[in-house]
Design a protein around this nucleic acid. Structure first.
Lengths: 121, 121
DNA sequence: TATTACCCTATCGGATAACTAGGCTATTGT
DNA sequence: ACAATAGCCTAGTTATCCGATAGGGTAATA
């Protein structure tokens, strides 16, 4: 969709065919993206999905979180999906904790500075 | 173990207790580390596990690969656990591929430049 | 020679995620 | 109006992985 100049609706079937995946499976992915505000949709004949924003304004960090879940390698350093480790008495005393934060930040830095437009160029 | 000055064997039971995990489970982890060359072991009374190298010379990238598997987010950009994507006709044509390589390299850079000694300080 | 402590294999159960299936509903063009 | 189109929704299946467990074996040491 991002490769198209115009912002006209694209049917699920067309994308499924060109990407070699099942139509139904793609449907669930596109539905997720619509619910999270990345895509709009149009029903009926001539309908389909379309991008709501300019590809330049879509950061990969947002897309990744929706489609892949947490960016952090471990839940205890995740910003959006934080979870405490079961048997960890003190995160600050954990030797691995700070290292994981460092990795998270460097990954996040890349995703935040890459747009959908960057990807297709 | 890295925190100890001397390189004397430490018993599984002691570590299991101080880390609040089952002795058997810890055993399987230590066994993995021994087989991959990070730890040595001594049997019989007074035995246990000990580091084979100086903590300064143990890079976290090596430890991570043994305990956590691939560092890359997707197999198709993994250096040590490479796998081709099923329905991908051309990796170079994949929009996500280069992004994932970038992330892999930045993560690897951190793990390569962090030693076990860095972690405990 | 008994005890200690590591060695090895098999397996279980829960969670996750890719993927599928089937039917419903809203929109559109004629 | 109405029939075809195309998205909407929920549930479920299947496969795989991983944390964790169990139990018995073997080598080394005091």
């Amino acid at each position: 969709m991002a490769r198209l100049e115009e912002r006209t609706p694209v049917q699920i079937g067309l994308i499924a065919e060109s990407e070699n995946i099942s139509q139904k499976y793609l449907e669930s992915i596109l539905l997720t993206l619509r619910k999270s505000g990345f895509l709009g949709s149009k029903k009926g004949k001539g309908g389909g999905y379309y991008l709501l924003k300019d590809p330049k304004d879509i950061k990969m960090s947002g897309v990744m979180r929706i489609l892949e879940g947490p960016i952090a390698m471990v839940p205890c350093v995740s910003l959006n999906f934080y979870e405490k480790c079961d048997d960890c008495p003190d995160e600050n005393a954990c030797a691995v904790h700070n290292l994981m934060i460092e990795v998270r930040d460097s990954t996040l830095n890349i995703f935040n500075n890459t747009s959908l437009a960057d990807l297709i160029s």
